[in-house]
Design a protein around this nucleic acid. Structure first.
Ligand SMILES: [Mn+2]
Ligand SMILES: [Mn+2]
Ligand SMILES: [Zn+2]
Ligand SMILES: [Zn+2]
Lengths: 159, 159
DNA sequence: TATTTATATTGAACTACTAAAAACAACTGC
DNA sequence: GCAGTTGTTTTTAGTAGTTCAATATAAATA
């Protein structure tokens, strides 16, 4: 069996295999499928990844996805994000920078937010309580334009 | 039965009862115990609160604590905090200001951090993606002095 | 290609939390 | 103070997300 599928031509070929081996991990179809999907669909949870890669890998299990995202997070190939309110953890392949997130409290839509002023002022809190800061995770919460319009419309209809 | 117990003299009496009634909630022993404990032990999770108030209220249930923290959060009497890594939600009575948190990734210790520059610059991300920001929750993560010393010592012992 | 060993699968368990019905107790008004 | 009303708690069960342990599988290595 060769590696080329109909999918491969659609996007720049990320050499997930090489990336995995570079970290001492075996390049399995499951891991590459998870990486590929997360690259195209950042901020997905384990269940979403599982459902998405299932058609191509019929024998894959949800437990495997959990194992994989845990291993990949541990090796720094993906980042685990936990958002207030959503019970499940999200994952993304964008790990080069320390970026943050903004979420609509109405529809749950998540977007990336670059570090606040560029040079991570967020890494300099007022009082560190003697701690050496390693990172800051910021989650902005608000309402997106679509939901805002929707809410305004509903308010107009039933006042 | 009067309200005075051995505990009451130790700290300023917070009138939790009045606070609860002011929000249209009944002043039950369980709710007051939860408020009292969270006031003295901020950033506790439901299980911790449950174990702590159990001696004084032997019939209290963990489910009741979950219900209570949910109700109190809903009425704005306490704040729910979710931290990366810790599966369970934490609660605190400090709700007057929009403060943030710093956590040691080694021992889990949590401290309060005042809003970064005072006037919530955290509420002004670079790109809002069209969203109207309502709040920002920042969790700084680092290593506390104790753990730092411990880690350095271990490194010295086994090099 | 055979061997080794990491990884995936399977099935079960665990934790945080929620739901529904019944028992209880805080407020209301007498 | 006492009974009635109704909000809360208790009890019992259930769910979602995740982890664990044993076995099966397949990627790397020779
Ligand atoms: Mn992101
Ligand atoms: Mn706090
Ligand atoms: Zn929205
Ligand atoms: Zn520490």
């Amino acid at each position: 069996m060769t590696h080329s599928t109909a999918h491969d031509s659609h996007h720049h070929a990320h050499d997930w295999a090489q990336l995995l081996r570079g970290r001492g991990l075996r390049a399995t179809a499951q891991r590459m499928a998870v990486l590929e999907f997360l690259h195209d669909h950042p901020h997905s949870d384990a269940e979403t990844v599982f459902q998405a890669i299932r058609p191509a890998l019929p024998t894959v299990s949800l437990q495997a996805v959990h194992l994989i995202v845990q291993d990949l997070s541990g090796k720094g190939l993906i980042r685990r994000i936990s958002l207030p309110d959503s019970a499940s953890a999200r994952y993304e392949t964008r790990i080069e920078d320390n970026h943050h997130h903004i979420q609509c409290i109405h529809c749950g839509r998540i977007e990336d937010v670059d570090c606040v002023v560029g040079h991570a002022p967020c890494l300099e809190p007022d009082d560190t309580h003697g701690m050496r800061i390693i990172e800051a995770s910021i989650v902005f919460r608000g309402i997106c334009q679509d939901c805002d319009a929707l809410i305004n419309q509903q308010a107009k209809e039933k006042p």
